[in-house]
Design a protein around this nucleic acid. Structure first.
Length: 391
RNA sequence: GGGGGUGUGGCAGAGCGGUCUAUUGCACCAGACUGUAAAUCUGGCGGGCUUAGCCCUUCGGUGGUUCAAAUCCAUCCGCCCCCA
């Protein structure tokens, strides 16, 4: 394969184009195509998370084989290791890891939440103490832009503060001010330099679970103007109803002709709910992390493959699934592998879960195009919840 | 034949007079995980009940000493090591 000399944008498609193919007549769901420098993404889409430049346990070929269109990387983690210098030397992250398709990087904003004990928010940015060696690193909006420019993903995110749950209203309000100001700085700084990889910079809406703050954040972020908008600070521990209620009130405020990305979500039921309200893009660690922890998402609900009930269950993990784990192996064997701590099971469950999510989004997309989204949602959820344990 | 050691809950292994249903690890049984500090974490793990508590039964067997024994004594049974 010949190395790419410049960014491989297809000259016939303008990066950032968001072509809506179908709108549901029943709700705000839509099916669309988003053009990025390294390819067009069909939405709604699920994006596997590969924090350190790798979707844990899964090869690029396998990702392709299950239909992954775009994967995530993370600024904080990749900046610490292997470092932006090396990634630049390699010709960008995609070349470095051998993924010749779209990528998106998170800004480090989530680490403000997840590494709360290892950082301090200051006026200019956030002082992180490396979880690897304890060294200190100041992340500013400008720094995050520099990192993400070096990494070179097709979609990059504004540096924001992902607030925790619960979060007091006045804190959340000040945090919205901060994230809006940072978004302004991100945009200004990012476009002050050459956009070498033709990257798309998305803005992020915050405001915790408060509708007034969400609205304020949305309007002010839209005012700055980005090619795409994300909802952040959700699925951080709040009750589902809180998240759903924010979705109902906030997604409608976003420009209809631009992609809507719900960060960090999620569970199958959350994804239906979000698409119904107009979300186009999702990322979540659940398929990969839960897979490694023995939990599979199946058409019949969640399955903890470690459990005793599967010791001699010689059926497939998910009878409706066509993934390698379901086609070639039994629940009993997967259970055995998990008990014996054989690494194969981590790969098989991860592959299955990712396949499940990607296929789910395909089903959702098709249901929008055939305009029976709500019926499909009901059908899916009924089956998905059919074996839920009732007490 | 002589000498020494040891037997604890599924396994390994602490405890060596009261605070012991008995540390810990493994195994086992469940649960959690949502822009990844995660192949991780949490809970349970003798029996029963009116289950944030109460009752009963456990530390090879038996019998003692003691107000009180997994812990001390005697004896029986089993296992291990060294010398001959």
């Amino acid at each position: 394969m010949a190395p790419q000399e410049t960014h491989p944008v297809n000259p016939s498609v303008k990066t950032g184009d968001f072509e809506i193919e179908a709108l549901s007549s029943q709700c705000a769901a839509r099916a669309a195509k988003l053009a990025t420098a390294r390819g067009v993404i069909e939405t709604p889409v699920f994006m596997p998370v590969g924090t350190q430049g790798s979707v844990k346990t899964i090869s690029n070929e396998e990702l392709k084989s299950i239909g992954a269109q775009i994967i995530l990387g993370n600024s904080y983690h990749l900046y610490l290791r292997p470092g932006t210098e090396l990634i630049e030397k390699a010709g960008g992250l995609q070349k470095f890891i051998g993924w010749n398709a779209p990528m998106l990087t998170d800004s480090g904003g989530f680490q403000i939440f997840s590494l709360a004990t290892l950082r301090r928010i200051e006026s200019q940015g956030v002082q992180f103490q490396s979880h690897i060696d304890g060294s200190k690193h100041l992340f500013t909006p400008e720094k995050s832009m520099d990192i993400q420019r070096s990494i070179g993903a097709d979609i990059i995110m504004c540096f924001d503060e992902c607030t925790p749950y619960p979060c007091a209203h006045d804190y959340a309000a000040r945090s919205v001010d901060l994230s809006v100001e940072w978004a302004r700085r991100c945009k200004e700084y990012f476009y002050s330099k050459e956009n070498k990889y033709d990257q798309l910079l998305f803005g992020i809406i915050q405001g915790s679970v408060y509708q007034d703050l969400r609205k304020d954040s949305a309007l002010r972020t839209i005012e700055i103007d980005f090619p795409g908008y994300a909802l952040g600070g959700l699925s951080v521990g709040e009750p589902k109803e809180e998240m759903y209620s924010v979705l109902r009130e906030t997604v409608g405020l976003l420009p209809k002709n631009k992609p809507h990305y719900l960060m960090g979500v999620g569970m199958p039921e959350d994804i239906w709910e979000a698409v119904e309200n107009g979300i186009d893009m999702f990322d979540c660690v659940l398929p990969t992390r839960n897979g490694r922890n023995g939990q599979a998402f199946t058409s019949l609900g969640k399955v903890n493959i470690r459990n005793a009930e599967y010791v001699s269950d010689f059926g497939p993990l998910d009878p409706e699934c066509d993934c390698p784990a379901c086609k070639g192996y039994t629940r009993a064997y997967l259970n055995h592998l998990f008990r014996a701590q054989e690494l194969l099971v981590l790969r098989l469950l991860t592959l299955h879960n990712l396949n499940f999510m990607i296929k789910l989004l395909k089903v959702i997309r098709n249901s929008i195009k055939s305009d029976n989204f709500l019926q499909e949602k009901e059908r899916f959820l009924k089956q998905y919840r059919s074996r839920e344990k009732t007490l």
